[in-house]
Design a protein around this nucleic acid. Structure first.
Lengths: 105, 105
DNA sequence: ACGAACGGTAAGCTACGACTTACCAATAGG
DNA sequence: CCTATTGGTAAGTCGTAGCTTACCGTTCGT
């Protein structure tokens, strides 16, 4: 049971708004206001989500005049990808043994 | 933004207890009480999580005397796997274009 | 220098999810 | 049968995550 404790990636992508933001930024970098227009939530809410994503290393931000452009961080994304994959590896590993055993019967 | 609405797999695996249960069941089928002993939560809590997992088609249960044995459902697991992969496909797809563009500069 | 655009932060509200205790049904065993 | 074991369900508590409004700082344009 390695899973349990530690703020992992599931908490981050567990929120629909956050997933939407990530998908949105995957398409192209965007300013906060742009994101807020697209999503059904207020701009401050977007800001808060971006903070979470930034702390997790998933996005980078860059000042551009009065605007602030956010983009996906390749390293962060693949790191989180790997982290989630680890769960499946561990799970499916022991799991396939069971399936095989059932096939023998 | 296809993601948004619909109770998807992230909600299910978003909970640490639920992930622990899944990992536990991946190892081998177990009764409710067994799971409760392993986890730091009460038996009713485990029951409730199992209900969620069962509704999602992730686990099957089978009566065995007074006990009830739960096991992972192969079909459900891979279905959920695929569902989560779809997010990454969509995300990384548009995303790699960006990375490539940056490489050109 | 003044106003507008843009965005981060604080404060507060609300809803919901996870957990607990208490209770009840069903099975097995003596 | 009567009791113990096992587990699902109901009811209620509690914490927290996500949202909103309000406010403030910063940058750009004129």
């Amino acid at each position: 049971m390695g899973t349990y404790q530690r703020p992992d990636g599931w908490e981050i992508l567990g929120d629909p708004s956050r997933r939407a933001i990530v998908e949105c930024l995957a398409e192209r970098p965007r300013a906060v206001g742009e994101l807020a227009e697209t999503l059904p939530i207020s701009r401050p809410a977007v800001s808060q989500h971006l903070k979470v994503l930034k702390d997790a290393g998933l996005v980078d931000d860059e000042a551009a005049g009065t605007r602030r452009v956010y983009r996906l961080n390749p390293a962060g994304v693949s790191a989180l990808r790997d982290q989630l994959d680890m769960f499946w590896k561990r799970t499916l590993q022991g799991f396939e043994e069971i399936v095989e055993d059932e096939g023998k019967s």
